[in-house]
């Protein structure tokens, strides 16, 4: 843990970031020059993409807030996190599966590792696998991307080791099915009906399959916990699952479960970003309304335009 606390002070991540920037700059300069030769426009274009500068400012702001809150958390002032029922229920669901002698089913979404929701899903799989190894429950994770299979195996193996149960890791329980969305749905649906898992976790990026999975899980009486940032699928999970991590809660899950001050600090940074956005919305609404009520005040229109620009509009 001590080493973890000093992680951001270590020069290596920063060196890696610098290397990334330097390599990227060098490659990009070459490509830019090539494009300029072809199009003859490179000299006229600014190096910075001015249109996206407000977005860059937001990222720098959130990055700065992250650094400040992580620093505060390390100095013994970690934030208070509200209780998230879905995460509190993870242990209960796995415990139930152990008691019933049935497996736990984990679906890390249907997208590849380049989707941040899949990364968050694999993170959750690691946490679930650790608890399951401690309880001696089996975790089954059929996946629909080869890279996700490899990442999931790594995560589960490390979790079993961390739980002191290296023997609990069985790679065959995490296997690839198909990239085809509904082929995968058919397989998982059939597996649920045959093996009747006692607990089902759906954590990742889901589309039309969300309702098919959760209704099947409901019909076999499994405890179901879902988490996704696909807002179009949230209503289905909320209707059919016992617990649902909604959007940002899903991304906060890893930090919540780890309890590490560093990670909790990033959640506070996330909230500060939300407060900033809300402030802009309120100010923008007031300025726009005032602009309508006082059409002669040109400065209100200019202020509104400035705010829109600041929000990247």
């Amino acid at each position: 843990m001590d080493r973890a606390h000093h992680r951001l002070r270590s020069p290596w991540p920063w060196a890696a970031i610098l290397v990334g920037c330097v390599i990227g700059w060098g490659q990009g300069q070459r490509a830019h020059a090539d494009a300029g030769v072809v199009a003859g426009t490179a000299a006229a274009e600014s190096i910075l993409n001015e249109h996206r500068l407000p977005l860059a400012a937001w990222i720098v702001g959130i990055g700065a807030a992250t650094t400040i809150f992580v620093w505060r958390a390390r100095r013994g002032r970690p934030p208070t996190i509200r209780r998230i029922a879905a995460l509190e229920a993870v242990d209960e669901a796995i415990g139930r599966a152990t008691e019933m002698g049935r497996p736990v089913l984990f679906i890390p979404g249907i997208q590849d590792m380049d989707n941040i929701q899949t990364v968050a899903g694999v993170t959750m799989l690691g946490r679930v696998a650790k608890t399951a190894a401690e309880y001696d429950a089996a975790v089954e994770a059929p996946v629909c991307r080869s890279l996700v299979m490899e990442a999931a195996r790594e995560a589960v193996q490390a979790s079993c080791l961390a739980a002191g149960r290296a023997d609990a890791y069985q790679p065959d329980r995490i296997h690839y099915v198909t990239d085809e969305q509904f082929g995968y749905v058919a397989y998982v649906g059939g597996k649920m009906m045959r093996e009747k898992p006692a607990a089902c976790f759906y954590m990742g990026c889901f589309f039309a399959e969300s309702l098919i999975f959760s209704e099947n899980g409901n019909s076999i009486g499994a405890i179901q916990i879902a988490g996704t940032a696909e807002s179009s699928q949230l209503p289905f999970f909320v209707a059919a699952c016992d617990y649902t991590l909604i959007g940002e809660e899903f991304f906060a899950a890893s930090a919540y479960l780890s309890g590490e001050p560093d990670q909790l600090g990033t959640l506070q940074a996330q909230d500060s970003g939300k407060v900033a956005v809300m402030s802009f919305i309120v100010i923008g609404a007031v300025v726009a309304t005032a602009g309508v009520l006082m059409p002669s005040a040109a400065w209100l229109g200019e202020l509104g335009a400035l705010l829109r620009k600041a929000m990247g509009g």
């Binding site: 249109h51 996206r52 589309f207 039309a208 807002s231 179009s232 699928q233």
Partner: peptide
């Protein structure tokens, strides 16, 4: 968003996507 208004777009999507 990146085209700064030079590309107009019309979309047709599924019922589940529409609210989004």
């Amino acid at each position: 968003s990146a085209s700064e208004g030079s590309v107009k777009m019309i979309a047709g999507c599924t019922g589940v996507q529409t609210p989004q």
